[in-house]
Design a protein around this nucleic acid. Structure first.
Lengths: 183, 183
DNA sequence: ACCTGAACACCGTTCAAGT
DNA sequence: ACCTGAACACCGTTCAAGT
């Protein structure tokens, strides 16, 4: 991968996390990189190609982090907390959102290739949570609970970021834990 | 309020619920209404004015519905189910989202007047839930729980609509109820 | 191999002009 | 009072032309 291609991805990622895929502008990215907007198309023919590449790297990086978590600990509560930390970290990074979380809201509008990558993020997260929870539950129950935990954490991020207050995220997660929705 | 103004709001509302505020196009709305895009500006000077009016009516309609619910029943579980029904109904309406839920994801990008109305929707919903829950809990605990329930339901809608499957919404809500996050 | 300027059809917005 | 066409600076995209 060329340096310029990586620089484009690095510049575009926080823009999407802050304002979404629709609001991403090739001219803004180009200005941040120091090239002309027409040049972005040499590396990413369409905006969909750029969005799909962003989501693919985001999912790959996230899953690598989660694999590392599982290799280092087996306590279910600690693992799920490590999972939630991905979403918490986005908020503490200038009140940004999970890249795929914000694009899930734009789901109807996304080019097919982008939507497919966003769906893969969801599937990968739910799959990882289900594997962790399967230490305690049977596979079907673990999957249902994993889906509910994933949805609840996404909602917590959405609401907390609407308020620009990571303390709200923590309070909501704490309430999930008290209800034992989260281990 | 003029007929045309109301017709514009009626045409724009499902468009935002499907694709978000950013993707809303004055020219699309104008075509649906049967006027030119420049004419929209006579009724709504800016896109922000239209977005704020949409969110204001949406919140007012929702709160009127919720007030009716409280007037007709006092069972906490039934009231919270009635609350969740707002979000379920959006999904069964061509896989749309809560108007303010989808705009919460675009929060960073919204004109101030729109963001203020979206925030009022969140506050109103959490306030209504807190009043319902205060039948059982003290005020502070009820508010914390109301916030967690609101976030969890928003997340359930986001994830289910990403899959285009209202059954997923029902499954997640059922799991919330089993965990007694929801009454 | 990588970048650019110019053009295209889009967008929200403005405004003078129509009725 | 309400609508319109034309113009403006934006957008993603294309492409012939540069190096």
């Amino acid at each position: 991968m060329s340096d310029t291609r990586q620089t484009i991805l690095d510049a575009a990622k926080p823009m999407v996390q802050a304002r979404g895929y629709n609001a991403l502008s090739f001219r803004d990215v180009a200005a941040a990189v120091g090239i002309k907007s027409a040049s972005i198309h040499y590396h990413f023919p369409t905006k969909g190609d750029l969005g799909a590449a962003l989501a693919r790297h985001y999912t790959d990086d996230g899953m690598a982090y989660l694999a590392g978590l599982r290799a280092g600990a087996s306590d279910i509560a600690a693992l799920v907390e490590g999972f939630a930390a991905i979403f918490r970290a986005a908020l503490t990074n200038d009140n940004r959102m999970c890249l795929c979380g914000i694009m899930t809201a734009e789901h109807q509008d996304l080019p097919d290739a982008v939507r497919a990558e966003v769906d893969r993020f969801t599937d990968s997260c739910v799959g990882w949570l289900a594997e962790v929870l399967a230490q305690d539950d049977n596979a079907a129950a673990a999957h249902d609970r994993a889906l509910a935990i994933f949805a609840a954490i996404q909602g917590a991020q959405l609401v907390a970021r609407g308020r620009g207050d990571v303390g709200l995220f923590d309070a909501i997660i704490a309430r999930y834990r008290e209800a034992r929705l989260l281990p």
